[in-house]
Amino acid sequence: MSGSTSVSIQLRLEEDWLEICDRTQLVPGRGLAALLPDGRQAALFLDREGRAYAIDNRDPFTGAAVLSRGLLGTEQGRPFVASPLLKQRFDLETGRCLDDDEVSVAVHPVRVA
């Protein structure tokens, strides 16, 4: 795990890793939104073990860019976020919606470095 030196959360966009924020800015169990250079938004999360996740921030059920404001949870050992609007849950590793097989959101490669 991290020492006292600063550790950042980075997203991979095409080839490059983009530094988003300092790891300490993320509270485990909660998310933050990041604005990507092309105008899209990513939702970043940290779980209690310090693992980072990133998915598209847009809630496909309502269209609003709010997934970063949902609560994290674990379902059968897998991390998910529940949309704060209508509470549908999305697997943080695959982007699949746990409550509707036909819906999913994009996942971004992310690292803590």
């Binding site: 509270v27 485990p28 169990g29 909660r30 609003a64 949902g70 609560l71 704060p84």
Partner: peptide
Amino acid sequence: GEQAALQDTNDHFLANLQKNG
């Protein structure tokens, strides 16, 4: 602290989330 991660977004931002964010 850890409490922060337990609250629904409304409690987190001390306001009510509306349909467009």
